[in-house]
Design a protein around this nucleic acid. Structure first.
Lengths: 234, 234
DNA sequence: TTTTGATTCCATCAATTGATTGAATGGCTA
DNA sequence: TAGCCATTCAATCAATTGATGGAATCAAAA
Protein backbone atom coordinates (compact mmCIF):
# COMPACT_ATOMS: atom_id res chain seq x y z
CA UNK A 1 0.00 0.00 0.00
CA UNK A 2 1.35 3.36 -1.00
CA UNK A 3 1.34 6.35 1.22
CA UNK A 4 -1.09 9.14 0.35
CA UNK A 5 1.86 11.26 -0.65
CA UNK A 6 3.15 8.71 -3.13
CA UNK A 7 -0.30 8.33 -4.59
CA UNK A 8 -0.58 12.04 -5.07
CA UNK A 9 2.79 12.27 -6.73
CA UNK A 10 1.95 9.44 -9.08
CA UNK A 11 -0.82 11.33 -10.82
CA UNK A 12 -0.41 15.10 -10.81
CA UNK A 13 -3.91 15.53 -12.23
CA UNK A 14 -5.59 13.78 -9.37
CA UNK A 15 -7.54 15.80 -6.86
CA UNK A 16 -5.16 14.67 -4.13
CA UNK A 17 -2.22 16.05 -6.05
CA UNK A 18 -3.93 19.28 -6.98
CA UNK A 19 -4.78 19.95 -3.37
CA UNK A 20 -1.23 19.18 -2.31
CA UNK A 21 0.18 21.55 -4.91
CA UNK A 22 -2.11 24.35 -3.83
CA UNK A 23 -1.31 23.67 -0.20
CA UNK A 24 2.40 23.99 -0.94
CA UNK A 25 1.88 27.40 -2.45
CA UNK A 26 -0.44 28.76 0.21
CA UNK A 27 1.34 27.31 3.22
CA UNK A 28 4.55 28.60 1.68
CA UNK A 29 3.23 32.13 1.38
CA UNK A 30 1.36 32.50 4.64
CA UNK A 31 2.79 29.87 6.95
CA UNK A 32 0.78 27.35 8.93
CA UNK A 33 -1.35 29.69 11.00
CA UNK A 34 -1.67 32.24 8.22
CA UNK A 35 -3.25 29.64 5.98
CA UNK A 36 -6.85 28.49 6.29
CA UNK A 37 -8.14 25.31 4.76
CA UNK A 38 -10.67 27.47 2.96
CA UNK A 39 -7.90 29.40 1.24
CA UNK A 40 -6.45 26.18 -0.12
CA UNK A 41 -9.83 24.81 -1.15
CA UNK A 42 -10.64 28.05 -2.91
CA UNK A 43 -7.34 27.97 -4.77
CA UNK A 44 -8.19 24.50 -6.05
CA UNK A 45 -11.82 25.44 -6.64
CA UNK A 46 -13.34 22.84 -4.35
CA UNK A 47 -15.18 22.60 -1.05
CA UNK A 48 -13.24 22.25 2.17
CA UNK A 49 -14.92 18.94 2.91
CA UNK A 50 -13.32 17.54 -0.23
CA UNK A 51 -9.98 18.70 1.04
CA UNK A 52 -10.52 16.99 4.37
CA UNK A 53 -11.77 13.88 2.63
CA UNK A 54 -8.46 13.51 0.84
CA UNK A 55 -5.95 14.71 3.37
CA UNK A 56 -7.49 14.50 6.84
CA UNK A 57 -7.05 17.52 9.04
CA UNK A 58 -4.96 20.61 8.56
CA UNK A 59 -1.98 19.18 10.40
CA UNK A 60 -1.96 16.08 8.24
CA UNK A 61 -1.99 18.18 5.11
CA UNK A 62 0.78 20.42 6.37
CA UNK A 63 2.81 17.40 7.27
CA UNK A 64 2.33 16.01 3.78
CA UNK A 65 3.44 19.33 2.31
CA UNK A 66 6.59 19.38 4.39
CA UNK A 67 7.43 15.81 3.45
CA UNK A 68 6.75 16.52 -0.19
CA UNK A 69 8.98 19.58 -0.26
CA UNK A 70 11.70 17.79 1.61
CA UNK A 71 11.49 14.94 -0.85
CA UNK A 72 11.86 17.28 -3.81
CA UNK A 73 14.80 18.97 -2.19
CA UNK A 74 16.46 15.63 -1.61
CA UNK A 75 16.04 14.69 -5.26
CA UNK A 76 17.52 17.99 -6.30
CA UNK A 77 20.56 17.36 -4.14
CA UNK A 78 21.01 13.96 -5.74
CA UNK A 79 20.86 15.46 -9.21
CA UNK A 80 23.34 18.07 -8.16
CA UNK A 81 25.75 15.50 -6.87
CA UNK A 82 25.73 13.76 -10.24
CA UNK A 83 26.56 16.93 -12.14
CA UNK A 84 29.11 18.42 -9.88
CA UNK A 85 31.88 15.85 -9.82
CA UNK A 86 34.29 17.54 -12.13
CA UNK A 87 36.76 20.37 -12.09
CA UNK A 88 38.03 22.50 -9.24
CA UNK A 89 36.36 23.31 -5.97
CA UNK A 90 35.71 26.83 -7.15
CA UNK A 91 34.11 25.57 -10.31
CA UNK A 92 32.05 23.01 -8.44
CA UNK A 93 30.72 25.64 -6.10
CA UNK A 94 29.93 27.91 -9.00
CA UNK A 95 27.90 25.23 -10.69
CA UNK A 96 26.18 24.14 -7.51
CA UNK A 97 25.19 27.66 -6.54
CA UNK A 98 23.94 28.42 -10.03
CA UNK A 99 21.90 25.30 -10.29
CA UNK A 100 20.51 25.35 -6.79
CA UNK A 101 19.58 29.01 -7.03
CA UNK A 102 17.76 28.43 -10.28
CA UNK A 103 15.90 25.52 -8.80
CA UNK A 104 14.80 27.45 -5.74
CA UNK A 105 13.72 30.49 -7.71
CA UNK A 106 11.61 28.14 -9.80
CA UNK A 107 10.08 26.64 -6.67
CA UNK A 108 10.08 29.44 -4.12
CA UNK A 109 7.63 27.64 -1.86
CA UNK A 110 10.45 25.20 -1.12
CA UNK A 111 12.56 27.93 0.41
CA UNK A 112 9.57 29.42 2.14
CA UNK A 113 8.58 26.19 3.79
CA UNK A 114 12.10 25.30 4.81
CA UNK A 115 12.54 28.68 6.47
CA UNK A 116 9.18 28.47 8.18
CA UNK A 117 10.21 25.19 9.66
CA UNK A 118 13.51 26.60 10.88
CA UNK A 119 12.30 29.85 12.33
CA UNK A 120 8.75 29.74 13.58
CA UNK A 121 6.86 27.81 16.14
CA UNK A 122 3.47 26.26 15.70
CA UNK A 123 0.92 26.63 18.45
CA UNK A 124 -0.12 23.04 18.41
CA UNK A 125 2.85 20.85 19.10
CA UNK A 126 3.01 19.13 15.74
CA UNK A 127 6.25 17.26 15.84
CA UNK A 128 6.95 16.30 12.30
CA UNK A 129 10.62 17.12 12.35
CA UNK A 130 11.56 13.68 13.49
CA UNK A 131 10.20 12.34 10.24
CA UNK A 132 12.06 14.82 8.09
CA UNK A 133 15.54 13.71 7.15
CA UNK A 134 18.07 16.48 7.33
CA UNK A 135 20.38 16.77 4.37
CA UNK A 136 23.04 19.00 5.84
CA UNK A 137 25.10 16.08 6.98
CA UNK A 138 25.04 14.39 3.59
CA UNK A 139 25.83 17.58 1.76
CA UNK A 140 28.69 18.31 4.07
CA UNK A 141 30.02 14.88 3.34
CA UNK A 142 29.48 15.21 -0.41
CA UNK A 143 31.30 18.52 -0.42
CA UNK A 144 34.21 16.95 1.33
CA UNK A 145 33.88 19.23 4.30
CA UNK A 146 34.28 16.45 6.79
CA UNK A 147 37.45 15.00 5.43
CA UNK A 148 39.89 16.83 7.59
CA UNK A 149 40.01 16.28 11.30
CA UNK A 150 40.07 19.98 12.02
CA UNK A 151 36.55 20.33 10.71
CA UNK A 152 34.19 18.31 12.87
CA UNK A 153 30.76 17.36 11.67
CA UNK A 154 28.91 20.13 13.47
CA UNK A 155 31.21 22.75 12.00
CA UNK A 156 30.74 21.28 8.53
CA UNK A 157 26.99 21.26 8.94
CA UNK A 158 27.01 24.89 9.99
CA UNK A 159 28.88 25.70 6.82
CA UNK A 160 26.31 23.90 4.73
CA UNK A 161 23.51 25.67 6.53
CA UNK A 162 24.91 29.12 6.02
CA UNK A 163 25.11 28.39 2.31
CA UNK A 164 21.60 27.00 2.12
CA UNK A 165 20.18 29.77 4.26
CA UNK A 166 21.82 32.35 2.08
CA UNK A 167 20.01 30.96 -0.93
CA UNK A 168 16.72 30.43 0.86
CA UNK A 169 16.78 33.94 2.25
CA UNK A 170 17.19 35.61 -1.10
CA UNK A 171 14.54 33.40 -2.68
CA UNK A 172 12.00 33.77 0.10
CA UNK A 173 12.71 37.43 0.51
CA UNK A 174 12.45 38.16 -3.18
CA UNK A 175 9.40 40.38 -2.84
CA UNK A 176 10.87 42.34 -0.02
CA UNK A 177 14.40 42.71 -1.31
CA UNK A 178 13.48 43.26 -4.90
CA UNK A 179 11.08 46.08 -4.18
CA UNK A 180 13.73 47.57 -1.93
CA UNK A 181 16.33 47.46 -4.68
CA UNK A 182 13.86 48.24 -7.44
CA UNK A 183 15.07 45.47 -9.70
CA UNK A 184 13.21 43.27 -12.13
CA UNK A 185 13.23 39.55 -11.56
CA UNK A 186 16.02 38.64 -13.92
CA UNK A 187 18.39 41.28 -12.64
CA UNK A 188 17.57 40.32 -9.10
CA UNK A 189 18.34 36.67 -9.70
CA UNK A 190 21.60 37.52 -11.41
CA UNK A 191 22.57 39.77 -8.55
CA UNK A 192 21.72 37.07 -6.04
CA UNK A 193 23.98 34.60 -7.80
CA UNK A 194 26.77 37.11 -8.07
CA UNK A 195 26.53 38.00 -4.41
CA UNK A 196 26.31 34.40 -3.23
CA UNK A 197 29.36 33.43 -5.24
CA UNK A 198 31.30 36.47 -4.16
CA UNK A 199 30.66 35.80 -0.50
CA UNK A 200 30.58 32.05 -0.21
CA UNK A 201 33.30 30.75 -2.47
CA UNK A 202 36.51 32.47 -1.32
CA UNK A 203 36.39 31.09 2.21
CA UNK A 204 36.32 27.50 1.02
CA UNK A 205 38.86 28.01 -1.71
CA UNK A 206 41.26 29.65 0.70
CA UNK A 207 40.89 26.91 3.24
CA UNK A 208 41.59 24.28 0.65
CA UNK A 209 44.66 26.23 -0.32
CA UNK A 210 45.90 26.32 3.22
CA UNK A 211 45.29 22.67 3.81
CA UNK A 212 47.20 21.67 0.76
CA UNK A 213 50.09 23.91 1.56
CA UNK A 214 50.05 22.69 5.11
CA UNK A 215 50.61 19.21 3.84
CA UNK A 216 53.19 20.57 1.45
CA UNK A 217 51.84 18.40 -1.26
CA UNK A 218 50.85 20.34 -4.37
CA UNK A 219 48.75 17.71 -6.01
CA UNK A 220 45.84 18.99 -8.08
CA UNK A 221 45.73 21.75 -10.60
CA UNK A 222 43.76 23.67 -7.99
CA UNK A 223 46.87 24.79 -6.20
CA UNK A 224 48.40 26.18 -9.30
CA UNK A 225 45.49 28.08 -10.64
CA UNK A 226 45.00 29.96 -7.40
CA UNK A 227 48.56 31.13 -6.99
CA UNK A 228 47.54 34.70 -7.48
CA UNK A 229 45.36 35.10 -4.43
CA UNK A 230 46.38 33.49 -1.27
CA UNK A 231 46.36 34.03 2.40
CA UNK A 232 49.53 33.55 4.30
CA UNK A 233 49.14 31.23 7.26
CA UNK A 234 49.62 33.34 10.35
CA UNK B 1 2.66 64.86 22.22
CA UNK B 2 4.68 61.70 22.19
CA UNK B 3 3.79 58.65 20.17
CA UNK B 4 2.47 55.66 22.09
CA UNK B 5 5.71 53.90 21.33
CA UNK B 6 7.83 56.63 22.87
CA UNK B 7 5.62 56.69 25.93
CA UNK B 8 6.02 52.98 26.36
CA UNK B 9 9.76 53.14 26.00
CA UNK B 10 10.00 55.94 28.53
CA UNK B 11 8.74 53.84 31.39
CA UNK B 12 9.47 50.13 31.07
CA UNK B 13 7.30 49.37 34.08
CA UNK B 14 4.18 50.86 32.57
CA UNK B 15 1.43 48.57 31.38
CA UNK B 16 1.91 49.85 27.85
CA UNK B 17 5.55 48.86 27.92
CA UNK B 18 4.91 45.49 29.52
CA UNK B 19 2.37 44.65 26.85
CA UNK B 20 4.75 45.74 24.13
CA UNK B 21 7.54 43.62 25.55
CA UNK B 22 5.32 40.55 25.73
CA UNK B 23 4.04 41.21 22.23
CA UNK B 24 7.61 41.31 20.94
CA UNK B 25 8.30 37.91 22.41
CA UNK B 26 5.08 36.24 21.30
CA UNK B 27 4.87 37.77 17.83
CA UNK B 28 8.51 36.86 17.44
CA UNK B 29 7.93 33.24 18.29
CA UNK B 30 4.70 32.58 16.48
CA UNK B 31 4.41 35.27 13.83
CA UNK B 32 1.43 37.50 13.26
CA UNK B 33 -1.22 34.90 12.54
CA UNK B 34 0.24 32.42 14.99
CA UNK B 35 -0.22 34.90 17.79
CA UNK B 36 -3.55 35.65 19.44
CA UNK B 37 -4.17 38.74 21.50
CA UNK B 38 -5.16 36.39 24.30
CA UNK B 39 -1.71 34.80 24.27
CA UNK B 40 -0.10 38.18 24.75
CA UNK B 41 -2.57 39.23 27.44
CA UNK B 42 -2.01 35.97 29.28
CA UNK B 43 1.77 36.44 29.14
CA UNK B 44 1.36 39.83 30.78
CA UNK B 45 -1.31 38.54 33.14
CA UNK B 46 -4.05 40.92 32.06
CA UNK B 47 -7.35 40.85 30.21
CA UNK B 48 -7.43 41.32 26.46
CA UNK B 49 -9.56 44.42 26.78
CA UNK B 50 -6.73 46.07 28.68
CA UNK B 51 -4.45 45.22 25.82
CA UNK B 52 -6.81 46.77 23.31
CA UNK B 53 -7.28 49.77 25.54
CA UNK B 54 -3.57 50.55 25.34
CA UNK B 55 -2.67 49.52 21.84
CA UNK B 56 -5.79 49.49 19.70
CA UNK B 57 -6.29 46.47 17.51
CA UNK B 58 -3.94 43.62 16.75
CA UNK B 59 -2.52 45.30 13.67
CA UNK B 60 -1.69 48.44 15.59
CA UNK B 61 0.14 46.45 18.21
CA UNK B 62 2.07 44.47 15.64
CA UNK B 63 3.02 47.66 13.90
CA UNK B 64 4.27 49.10 17.17
CA UNK B 65 6.31 45.95 17.77
CA UNK B 66 7.93 46.16 14.35
CA UNK B 67 8.76 49.81 14.80
CA UNK B 68 10.14 49.15 18.26
CA UNK B 69 12.38 46.33 17.09
CA UNK B 70 13.54 48.36 14.14
CA UNK B 71 14.34 51.24 16.44
CA UNK B 72 16.43 49.02 18.72
CA UNK B 73 18.26 47.61 15.76
CA UNK B 74 19.03 51.09 14.49
CA UNK B 75 20.46 52.08 17.86
CA UNK B 76 22.60 48.98 17.90
CA UNK B 77 24.00 49.85 14.49
CA UNK B 78 24.86 53.31 15.72
CA UNK B 79 26.69 51.91 18.74
CA UNK B 80 28.51 49.53 16.49
CA UNK B 81 29.64 52.31 14.22
CA UNK B 82 31.20 54.12 17.16
CA UNK B 83 33.18 51.11 18.26
CA UNK B 84 34.36 49.83 14.98
CA UNK B 85 36.44 52.65 13.58
CA UNK B 86 39.83 51.25 14.28
CA UNK B 87 42.17 48.68 12.92
CA UNK B 88 42.02 46.64 9.73
CA UNK B 89 38.99 45.60 7.75
CA UNK B 90 39.40 42.06 8.99
CA UNK B 91 39.55 43.24 12.57
CA UNK B 92 36.57 45.53 12.10
CA UNK B 93 34.50 42.70 10.70
CA UNK B 94 35.55 40.44 13.53
CA UNK B 95 34.43 42.94 16.10
CA UNK B 96 31.21 43.77 14.29
CA UNK B 97 30.23 40.13 13.88
CA UNK B 98 31.03 39.36 17.50
CA UNK B 99 29.12 42.26 18.87
CA UNK B 100 26.13 41.96 16.56
CA UNK B 101 25.85 38.23 17.15
CA UNK B 102 25.92 38.72 20.90
CA UNK B 103 23.27 41.38 20.67
CA UNK B 104 20.96 39.26 18.56
CA UNK B 105 21.36 36.18 20.72
CA UNK B 106 20.41 38.37 23.67
CA UNK B 107 17.33 39.62 21.82
CA UNK B 108 16.30 36.77 19.55
CA UNK B 109 12.88 38.25 18.93
CA UNK B 110 14.63 40.93 16.91
CA UNK B 111 15.91 38.38 14.44
CA UNK B 112 12.62 36.54 14.45
CA UNK B 113 10.60 39.61 13.65
CA UNK B 114 12.98 40.82 10.97
CA UNK B 115 12.85 37.46 9.24
CA UNK B 116 9.07 37.26 9.53
CA UNK B 117 8.85 40.60 7.81
CA UNK B 118 11.15 39.48 5.04
CA UNK B 119 9.71 36.09 4.33
CA UNK B 120 6.05 35.80 5.08
CA UNK B 121 2.91 37.45 3.92
CA UNK B 122 0.08 38.65 6.10
CA UNK B 123 -3.46 37.94 5.08
CA UNK B 124 -4.68 41.42 5.76
CA UNK B 125 -2.74 43.89 3.69
CA UNK B 126 -1.02 45.71 6.53
CA UNK B 127 1.50 47.87 4.79
CA UNK B 128 3.84 49.02 7.49
CA UNK B 129 6.99 48.56 5.52
CA UNK B 130 6.86 52.07 4.16
CA UNK B 131 7.26 53.33 7.68
CA UNK B 132 10.20 51.11 8.50
CA UNK B 133 13.54 52.62 7.54
CA UNK B 134 15.88 50.12 5.99
CA UNK B 135 19.41 50.16 7.33
CA UNK B 136 21.13 48.17 4.63
CA UNK B 137 22.00 51.29 2.67
CA UNK B 138 23.53 53.04 5.67
CA UNK B 139 25.46 49.98 6.74
CA UNK B 140 26.80 49.50 3.25
CA UNK B 141 27.97 53.07 3.30
CA UNK B 142 29.46 52.79 6.76
CA UNK B 143 31.36 49.69 5.75
CA UNK B 144 32.78 51.51 2.78
CA UNK B 145 31.18 49.10 0.36
CA UNK B 146 29.93 51.83 -1.92
CA UNK B 147 33.18 53.67 -2.35
CA UNK B 148 34.33 52.04 -5.52
CA UNK B 149 32.45 52.48 -8.73
CA UNK B 150 32.51 48.78 -9.47
CA UNK B 151 30.23 48.09 -6.54
CA UNK B 152 26.88 49.79 -7.11
CA UNK B 153 24.49 50.43 -4.28
CA UNK B 154 22.27 47.44 -4.93
CA UNK B 155 25.24 45.10 -4.93
CA UNK B 156 26.51 46.62 -1.70
CA UNK B 157 23.09 46.25 -0.11
CA UNK B 158 22.94 42.61 -1.12
CA UNK B 159 26.25 42.07 0.61
CA UNK B 160 24.96 43.66 3.77
CA UNK B 161 21.82 41.58 3.62
CA UNK B 162 23.62 38.29 3.24
CA UNK B 163 25.64 39.15 6.32
CA UNK B 164 22.61 40.19 8.34
CA UNK B 165 20.58 37.23 7.15
CA UNK B 166 23.38 34.88 8.10
CA UNK B 167 23.26 36.16 11.65
CA UNK B 168 19.48 36.30 11.84
CA UNK B 169 19.16 32.77 10.52
CA UNK B 170 21.42 31.26 13.13
CA UNK B 171 19.75 33.23 15.91
CA UNK B 172 16.19 32.52 14.84
CA UNK B 173 16.95 28.93 14.01
CA UNK B 174 18.71 28.29 17.29
CA UNK B 175 16.17 25.77 18.52
CA UNK B 176 16.15 23.88 15.28
CA UNK B 177 19.87 23.91 14.57
CA UNK B 178 21.00 23.39 18.10
CA UNK B 179 18.88 20.32 18.62
CA UNK B 180 20.12 19.03 15.28
CA UNK B 181 23.73 19.48 16.31
CA UNK B 182 23.13 18.52 19.94
CA UNK B 183 25.05 21.47 21.32
CA UNK B 184 24.50 23.55 24.41
CA UNK B 185 23.84 27.23 24.02
CA UNK B 186 27.35 28.50 24.61
CA UNK B 187 28.98 26.07 22.24
CA UNK B 188 26.35 26.83 19.64
CA UNK B 189 26.94 30.57 19.87
CA UNK B 190 30.68 30.11 19.62
CA UNK B 191 30.26 27.87 16.62
CA UNK B 192 27.97 30.41 14.98
CA UNK B 193 30.53 33.16 15.39
CA UNK B 194 33.31 30.95 14.11
CA UNK B 195 31.32 29.95 11.07
CA UNK B 196 30.14 33.46 10.27
CA UNK B 197 33.66 34.79 10.45
CA UNK B 198 35.08 31.94 8.43
CA UNK B 199 32.57 32.43 5.64
CA UNK B 200 31.97 36.16 5.55
CA UNK B 201 35.32 37.79 6.11
CA UNK B 202 37.63 36.39 3.41
CA UNK B 203 35.55 37.62 0.50
CA UNK B 204 35.76 41.22 1.65
CA UNK B 205 39.38 41.07 2.65
CA UNK B 206 40.36 39.61 -0.69
CA UNK B 207 38.44 42.22 -2.60
CA UNK B 208 40.08 44.99 -0.67
CA UNK B 209 43.44 43.48 -1.45
CA UNK B 210 42.70 43.34 -5.12
CA UNK B 211 41.41 46.90 -5.26
CA UNK B 212 44.51 48.24 -3.63
CA UNK B 213 46.78 46.43 -5.95
CA UNK B 214 44.71 47.53 -8.90
CA UNK B 215 44.97 51.20 -8.05
CA UNK B 216 48.47 51.08 -6.67
CA UNK B 217 47.56 54.40 -5.18
CA UNK B 218 47.45 54.55 -1.38
CA UNK B 219 45.15 57.50 -0.78
CA UNK B 220 42.79 57.17 2.18
CA UNK B 221 43.68 56.03 5.63
CA UNK B 222 41.84 52.86 4.84
CA UNK B 223 44.49 51.85 2.41
CA UNK B 224 47.41 52.62 4.65
CA UNK B 225 46.25 50.88 7.73
CA UNK B 226 46.00 47.68 5.78
CA UNK B 227 49.71 47.42 5.15
CA UNK B 228 50.18 45.10 8.06
CA UNK B 229 47.15 43.00 7.39
CA UNK B 230 47.52 39.28 7.30
CA UNK B 231 46.77 39.01 3.67
CA UNK B 232 49.99 38.99 1.82
CA UNK B 233 50.13 40.36 -1.69
CA UNK B 234 51.68 37.67 -3.78
C1' DT C 1 -15.72 64.22 50.67
C1' DT C 2 -16.96 64.37 46.07
C1' DT C 3 -15.59 64.44 41.41
C1' DT C 4 -12.99 63.35 37.70
C1' DG C 5 -10.31 60.69 34.70
C1' DA C 6 -7.61 56.81 33.78
C1' DT C 7 -7.32 52.01 34.07
C1' DT C 8 -8.84 47.23 34.43
C1' DC C 9 -11.82 43.34 33.98
C1' DC C 10 -16.24 40.64 33.15
C1' DA C 11 -19.58 39.49 29.88
C1' DT C 12 -20.66 39.25 25.42
C1' DC C 13 -20.72 39.63 20.08
C1' DA C 14 -19.97 38.66 15.39
C1' DA C 15 -16.92 36.64 12.29
C1' DT C 16 -13.73 33.17 11.26
C1' DT C 17 -12.05 28.63 11.28
C1' DG C 18 -11.37 23.57 11.50
C1' DA C 19 -14.06 19.84 10.94
C1' DT C 20 -18.21 16.60 10.24
C1' DT C 21 -22.66 14.81 8.54
C1' DG C 22 -25.52 13.31 5.18
C1' DA C 23 -27.31 13.84 0.85
C1' DA C 24 -26.21 13.92 -4.16
C1' DT C 25 -23.44 12.51 -8.22
C1' DG C 26 -21.39 9.48 -11.35
C1' DG C 27 -18.79 5.57 -12.80
C1' DC C 28 -18.18 0.67 -12.54
C1' DT C 29 -19.56 -4.21 -12.07
C1' DA C 30 -22.65 -8.09 -11.37
C1' DT D 1 -31.05 -2.58 -14.21
C1' DA D 2 -29.60 -2.66 -9.45
C1' DG D 3 -26.00 -2.41 -6.27
C1' DC D 4 -21.73 -0.67 -4.82
C1' DC D 5 -18.16 2.49 -4.09
C1' DA D 6 -15.49 6.61 -4.47
C1' DT D 7 -15.99 11.37 -4.76
C1' DT D 8 -18.00 15.93 -4.09
C1' DC D 9 -20.61 19.50 -1.91
C1' DA D 10 -24.21 22.12 0.90
C1' DA D 11 -25.35 22.70 5.49
C1' DT D 12 -24.08 22.92 9.87
C1' DC D 13 -21.31 22.73 14.51
C1' DA D 14 -18.39 23.90 18.15
C1' DA D 15 -14.40 26.33 19.29
C1' DT D 16 -11.51 30.15 18.64
C1' DT D 17 -10.56 34.80 17.83
C1' DG D 18 -10.61 39.93 17.47
C1' DA D 19 -13.00 43.35 19.46
C1' DT D 20 -16.36 46.20 22.39
C1' DG D 21 -19.59 48.03 26.10
C1' DG D 22 -20.21 48.84 30.59
C1' DA D 23 -19.43 48.19 35.32
C1' DA D 24 -15.91 48.30 38.94
C1' DT D 25 -11.65 50.14 40.86
C1' DC D 26 -8.47 53.53 42.23
C1' DA D 27 -5.70 57.58 42.68
C1' DA D 28 -5.38 62.42 42.29
C1' DA D 29 -7.72 66.84 41.99
C1' DA D 30 -11.24 69.96 43.54
Amino acid sequence: MKSPLEKARKNPESMKARILAAARRIFGEYGFHGTTTRMIAKEVGIDISTLHYHWGDKNDLYEAVVMDVNNDLGKEFLNLEKIVHTSTLEERMNIALDRMTDYLFDHPEVSNLVLFRYFSKTRNEVDIDFKVPEFSGNIAHAMGLTKDAKNPLSRAMMEVMIIMNGMHSFVSGENYFRSMLKLDRKNYIDLVKETLKFILIPAFVLREEKMKKGRSRPSSKMTQEKKKSKVKPS
